[in-house]
Design a binder for these strands. Structure first.
Lengths: 131, 131
DNA sequence: GAGCTTGATAAGAATCATTCTTAGATGATA
DNA sequence: TATCATCTAAGAATGATTCTTATCAAGCTC
């Protein structure tokens, strides 16, 4: 596992954190804290939920992962921090990435004095499995 | 209050429900369950949280309100069920409606076998107050 | 390398929004 | 008005997340 790669995160690299980073690296499944806990626990049986949450919070604050507001029941995390959008199944809540750059700008008269930061588009539908 | 207007909802119209509907009618603030509870409690001191949730669930299932997934800490409800998007302050979580029809289509090759239902665009920024 | 300081970990308690349960009350309809 | 399905209220239960506390480890300074 390329520890080097994580140096730039500027957070202390402990074995638990490396295990979480390794699980997230290249992961396309948008896991919840519980998903991550369960996966990493196999390797570190003493892993605690608090460590998972602390690490995710640190990574989010460093801009390394995105916290998704898609599932009202729980937070989900997106390790892919290139700009992209999501296609979500309204039945099973599964999420698929959409790597397409939509040329979309908010007309100046509608910004209501906001300093704009970004945008996010969610498409809703029913996935193949749920049909 | 136009009780007539709510007949089409096909739900039993009790005083508590009418109070909730009246609070929601024309409301542009995207309230949480707690906001609604607090507001309606003034009129009905015996109102319970369960009634608020039950009513919101019924209204949502009838398509009369939208449940917003914008705030990870709590559900928020949008009484405006005409198609529109949102502009959200990342600091105070305030939400402003954007009534602009963006011509936005997901290319067929990206649908991954989903039956598409709809889309939702969120713009993020910092509002005038929070600057 | 020893000691120090800061931050991380583990375990469980605490919190908070939401959902469930139950018994009793009320609206809708004929 | 009688019937019945549904609603209400109160509080318990749930479940994700956050907080607390006591250790422990990493990385710096000397």
């Amino acid at each position: 596992m390329p520890v080097q790669k994580y140096r730039s995160l500027q957070i202390k690299l402990t074995p638990q954190r490396l295990a979480i980073l390794s699980y997230l690296n290249g992961n396309k499944t948008h896991p919840s804290a519980e998903d991550i806990y369960k996966a990493v626990q196999k390797q570190y049986p003493t892993m605690s939920f608090a460590t998972v949450y602390n690490t995710l919070e640190a990574l989010r604050d460093k801009g390394n992962i995105r916290e998704l507001k898609i599932d009202p029941a729980k937070k989900r995390y997106d390790p892919d921090n290139t700009p992209h959008h999501h296609l979500i199944c309204v039945k099973c809540n599964c999420i698929v990435d959409i790597h397409e750059d939509f040329d979309l700008n908010l007309p100046g008269k509608l910004t209501r004095g906001f300093d704009l930061i970004g945008k996010s588009i969610e498409f809703y539908g029913i996935c193949r499995k749920c049909k």
